[in-house]
Design a protein around this nucleic acid. Structure first.
Lengths: 231, 231
DNA sequence: CGATGAATTTCTGTCGACAAAGAGAATACA
DNA sequence: TGTATTCTCTTTGTCGACAGAAATTCATCG
């Protein structure tokens, strides 16, 4: 299926291909949390040696997407439902900080990029496509973070957004209520505040937006415990 | 010198050894920023194959301590003096957040650990040992972050502290003035605020402390431009 | 003498192989 | 039947080797 039938690969692209493939499968929950990753199997599937695969696994481990057990198999990182509050704390703060910095440092080009992402998000909401909403929402906020020009915050924020994507995917079927349209409106307000370089309003709106999202996730979890609760 | 004459190494410790060795040398500036890292040379020095060395390099790249140039040598990460403000922003915010969370979530055992680190820092200040001050100060704040119980913040903070350690090492000879004792006092105040679970005071003290440090680094840089200014 | 281009050398990315560690199966024992 | 022990098999960590890129050297030309 996903195999690369073409044996001709550019030098240096091997590990990158494995990295991107695994990353996508992990974030899409095609590989469920806790799933062991067999190096030999992957090597066969992607038609390459174990060396580039191990390199990709080390990178993914550095980003917290997989957990490497010494002398034992690497597994897809579990979602720690018992310490979600630390995740929410970090996510909320990064929402605030990146939006505030975007208000301070953005360029005209950043605004264009952010607006483009917002259009994609609005389109996903119109189309009732929950999976697309999750993805485009991520890109929208990543674009804002990029405009803030602080790689430390952007790095942590993107990592948190990825983690959040996995959580949201678990409950994405609950995503068809009236809330998404509210997000579109809030996004528009955030864009306006950034463009006006009103950092305090950026901060306030980002805080409110983050709390909305956190609350939605929490209600999804409390309503959907039946789905699956991995320990 | 640093070679491992003992050929008997435990399985799985190879990459770990390379990682720790390189990390220490990078943070101590034994390997200057921009220095290319030759895999073969390292393999010979540490008496092992290139495989575990490459694994360690990938990990270090994930933490931003080295930069991997495709099909070209890996180099020790440069210090971006032109964008130091992003570093200061992130560092200050993490000082605040981790100290605040420590005030909220610390246990009695955390306090013991923090106090122990503070004693080590005070000893370094008494002994006028600038290098020890840098190291023990890092450990003091890392202990506080640990007490805050948020791995996302702790992770970013430790990374920033490492980056800061490299910057401070460049100017550590300027570290023999009267300021360090002030840090000891401020540390004591921070400990008291954490122990009293007074999160607002934690926040205020951490902010002031961070600004102190940022100011000191900036004055070191402006005074010591003659040292070396890698572009 | 400086610049351009080809040949050589060096170093990285990938491969297949092997040995140790762990997981699982089979056996012995209570 | 349940538990402990040994053996086997699977899987990881490391190795040496090779091919492709890049850097370097060297030769040629203006």
């Amino acid at each position: 299926m996903t195999e690369k039938t073409i044996r001709e690969r550019k030098r240096g692209s091997g590990a990158q291909l494995v990295y991107e493939t695994l990353r996508e499968e992990i974030l899409d929950l095609a590989l469920a949390p806790g799933t062991p990753i067999d190096e030999n199997q992957l090597a066969e599937r992607l038609a390459m040696s174990r060396t580039p695969i191990r390199e990709a696994l080390v990178r993914l481990a550095g980003e917290g997407l997989v957990t490497q057990l010494p002398n034992r198999s690497t597994v897809v990182a579990n979602i720690d439902f018992f310490n979600l509050h630390t995740f929410f704390d970090a996510l909320t703060l990064m929402y605030r900080v990146t939006t505030r910095l975007a208000g301070e440092f953005h360029t005209a080009q950043d605004i264009q990029s952010i607006r483009a992402r917002q259009r994609e998000f609005a389109r996903a909401v119109e189309g009732q496509d929950a999976l697309a909403m999750i993805a485009t929402n991520r890109e929208f906020h990543a674009a804002i973070a990029e405009a803030g020009r602080n790689p430390y915050f952007t790095g942590l924020f993107c990592r948190l957004l990825d983690e959040g994507q996995r959580i949201l995917r678990i409950y994405y079927s609950s995503f068809n209520d009236q809330l998404p349209h509210r997000y579109v409106v809030e996004h528009e307000q955030i864009i306006a505040a950034i463009e006006a370089r009103d950092v305090n309003t950026c901060d306030r709106l980002a805080t409110a937006h983050a709390e909305q999202i956190v609350q939605q996730i929490q209600s999804m979890i409390s309503r959907g415990v039946s789905h699956n609760m991995p320990l």
